[in-house]
């Protein structure tokens, strides 16, 4: 397992590590049932705070990507339980793209009112397509 940290990035280190582990689980690079390094081992390997690594593992476990087996170790979960995480990931990606789009709109001179009008219109179209 490889994790690379960019120090001095505007993305917090905890998020960098979590995102890399998440995408490695989802892409299958880390296969189901594979044992991950312990919190201590990974902390030492990356020279990152032990508590930070622990929180990342806990978060990924809550997303159903990995499983913390007490007294045994941390294992990658099978794809079935990863479905929720997949959704969470795609939502996060959508959020980012949405934010970027809004930012672009602001630069182009759109006001909040313009956005609202646009949103109402887009929602109406989307509903029509669903029917």
């Amino acid at each position: 397992m490889f994790v690379h940290i960019e120090r001095g990035s505007s993305i917090p280190i905890s998020r960098q590590i979590a995102e890399q582990l998440r995408s490695q689980c989802l892409s299958g690079l880390l296969s189901a049932g594979q044992k991950l390094p312990s919190v201590r081992e990974l902390a030492q390997q990356l020279a990152v705070n032990v508590n930070t690594v622990f929180r990342i593992y806990e978060r990924l476990a809550a997303e159903g990507l990995i499983e913390l087996r007490h007294g045994d170790g941390t294992y990658v979960c099978p794809p079935k339980t990863q479905a929720d995480a997949q959704l969470a990931l795609q939502r996060e990606k959508f959020q980012k793209e949405f934010d970027a789009l809004i930012q672009q709109g602001v630069m182009l001179g759109y006001s909040a009112a313009d956005f609202r009008a646009r949103l109402t219109l887009a929602m109406a179209t989307a509903r029509k397509q669903q029917q």
Partner: peptide
């Protein structure tokens, strides 16, 4: 990280190297 944090010690340290502090503190 290995010898102090993992062993549960309390550490206070001063530094100028903020990029590194972020990973450790």
């Amino acid at each position: 990280v290995e010898h102090l944090q993992a062993e549960g010690r309390t550490v206070i340290y001063s530094s100028h190297l903020l990029d590194e502090v972020e990973a450790v503190a």
